[in-house]
Write a protein that binds this DNA or RNA. Sequence first.
DNA 1: AATGAATGAGCGTTCATTCAT
DNA 2: GATGAATGAACGCTCATTCAT
Lengths: 236, 236, 236, 236
Amino acid sequence: MATLTPKQREILEREAKILDVARPMVVREGYHGLNMDKIAEKVSYSKGTIYNHFSCKEEIIIALAVQNSAKRVQLFQKAAQFKGCSRHRMIAISAAAELFVRNYPDFFQFERILQLDSVREKTSEKRQSIIHNCEMQCMSIVAGVVRDAVASEDLELPKQFTPEKLVFGLWSLTSGAYSIAAASDALQQMGIDDPFETVRDHIAALLDGFNWQPISDQYDIDKLLKRIQKEVLNDE
Amino acid sequence: MATLTPKQREILEREAKILDVARPMVVREGYHGLNMDKIAEKVSYSKGTIYNHFSCKEEIIIALAVQNSAKRVQLFQKAAQFKGCSRHRMIAISAAAELFVRNYPDFFQFERILQLDSVREKTSEKRQSIIHNCEMQCMSIVAGVVRDAVASEDLELPKQFTPEKLVFGLWSLTSGAYSIAAASDALQQMGIDDPFETVRDHIAALLDGFNWQPISDQYDIDKLLKRIQKEVLNDE
Amino acid sequence: MATLTPKQREILEREAKILDVARPMVVREGYHGLNMDKIAEKVSYSKGTIYNHFSCKEEIIIALAVQNSAKRVQLFQKAAQFKGCSRHRMIAISAAAELFVRNYPDFFQFERILQLDSVREKTSEKRQSIIHNCEMQCMSIVAGVVRDAVASEDLELPKQFTPEKLVFGLWSLTSGAYSIAAASDALQQMGIDDPFETVRDHIAALLDGFNWQPISDQYDIDKLLKRIQKEVLNDE
Amino acid sequence: MATLTPKQREILEREAKILDVARPMVVREGYHGLNMDKIAEKVSYSKGTIYNHFSCKEEIIIALAVQNSAKRVQLFQKAAQFKGCSRHRMIAISAAAELFVRNYPDFFQFERILQLDSVREKTSEKRQSIIHNCEMQCMSIVAGVVRDAVASEDLELPKQFTPEKLVFGLWSLTSGAYSIAAASDALQQMGIDDPFETVRDHIAALLDGFNWQPISDQYDIDKLLKRIQKEVLNDE
DNA sequence: AATGAATGAGCGTTCATTCAT
DNA sequence: GATGAATGAACGCTCATTCAT
């Protein structure tokens, strides 16, 4: 299956090209900055052709979000394959999350734009559900690791505290930190030169706070991150 | 001083009115959704009058951000007055942060819009610096509590880990959680009905992870929050 | 080459139409009087279409100036082809200048508008250089005749007095007279019914003053002008 | 008579102040560039006060023109007092014209703006007639010198050629040269560094062409100009 | 399928003038 | 007389979308 005719291949390539051109426009200047005329000019196709690929401006934005979401799933899947104890697998996933947030910093941008009713309404359900599915997959990958930790008695969650809640906290921390880092000039003034390192420390403290075994040890963590990098995330 | 003529009072009131009308427009539909004609129509003054108050559209947006920032400082100042041990004071501040994020959820919205170069450039330095100052004040209030904790030996931070870094982590968690909660329909599907409660649990775990004394105890916390609510945040 | 598709032809025609409509607006009411809405209305195309032809209001003004400049070169080239002695060729050129100033009285208007920095800045370099080139061409055509006169010993210029200076004087006289004639109601009160005839007399006196041979003779001049009119400028 | 109350004096002073501020605005950016708000700001009076002095924007422009016209008359009157033969008195007047054109280069600017129907219509008849009268006075001063020249047989005008026509030519030359000099970057490229010197040469040639005695002689002219400068125009 | 000219509602902003205080 | 807030018509320009070729 999936053997593409030359024609189909060309179409896919053009689609990718359009998105490549569109991405930095949105990232730099937001919804406003995406301009169909400029896209047409930069990809050297006519506006009509752009509209053959994407029925409206909003579809381009959601297509960019789909690209990101797919990438996130990919990274999380890889990270979950890391061999080790539950906590170390969780750290692998955190590393994947950090990698994703570093490399696809526009993810949040697109998400936010898509939250505007006026934008989302013009968007195809198909792409909406792709994004939703990706989110669910990521969540369940991470929650799966938490469940494994509980099952193997590395971790005992408080009553009423589900694995999903833990995932939610970790993701909040990671994405919140990114947003602040991206937004604020103030970080450096506060002596925080490497916000991602700080986030790693917080994640360690958080997992320690939940008493997830083995409790963090700086020496181990450095070696561990190198292994994770090498074994599952090295080609990114 | 500060005795206003009726005229001046009227002007100030109108300024507030304009912002009141503008706020939901930006919140719901972003930068795009703020429309000078619609504002004029809704406040029943001419467009020219709007421009007598705010020299451009962007100034309205930053004025909204200023309102929020001022409120944040206020809340944090109040919370810092809570009488108790360092950890409890920190919890008071967390409660203030939660309150702020709940009641002024558009704060992040404005901040993000203001990060666009094209927007910030048109914005007065005066208002820019007000916002910056508020940010710095909040930061130093919270960092002050952390320093008190260290001084009173309730808390021993890891080497190289400054109070500011701890503040950064807490704020990341709080604001990140808000963003996700606001953005995602998925949260409910994951069984997270009250994201703020979950955040409180994470903050507790995080502070526990840093071994900030006294270690959390669910029973105490509920009572504590009620006291905080009553003693310093009750009128919000 | 130069075979235009019907579409292209239509576009060129519309461009001309836009300029035709714009010209009297500028002439009568200046920069202010040129109004994109009114143009659109008068040519019965949408505003967007106007902007497809001219990227801004100022481009329309400079396009009008380009039309004029091109015409001026054309007239001067024709006049320079007049067969006769150097002084008579110079008179042919003066006649061309008069013809131009009479038929394209808006020339100075456009030039003046284009001198405003605020206007010129928005103007394409391409059109700017066209105008500049036309000016240079005209100048060199006339200066060429003066040089021929010097070479053939019909004229001996004072020391330090270049042909370009003579051209400058002639053009100052012609254009200054036009400006005054256009501006002032006073001329008639002073008994000057035909300012152009008066200018012709002044040019004659001026050339006499430089002792350019053959010295003017009213009888000859009338016949000469008729010949010039007939031989090189008759179809204007 | 004309002893002003302090109040009246203050009013006149304010009027002058307004015009001082308005002048460069019009000169640099034309009709468009004159902005009532900016005037009010610069003179530190309210807009209402400006309107007490000048009933509309156009009245300010014509008031500026009146200032210039008055100055022109003054200069011409002074120059006409020069003691000497008719041709030398004419040269004195030319020097006055040059001085005026150099020092009040905005004169033409205002005149042109006032030719726009839309502007003139809003202008008071009183000021219109002041300008007209000044023009007439200047004209008759110069024409008077020409008439003296004819009477004293220094000059014999061609048949049908009135003194007014000669004045018209001289003024055309002077003002046309100024316009070109102001407008064109091309002048320097043509090797004309001092257009006013060139104009003096042309005037000399023109008067020679009319055989106005005594025929020009470079040596004399330099001395003559110095005398004129010293005796009648020195305090400008 | 590809093109790109045409559309036109919509937007942010300006500014001469008025007039209540 | 002085003030300056209020007005609102007007303007230049943009850009997503359509559709005839």
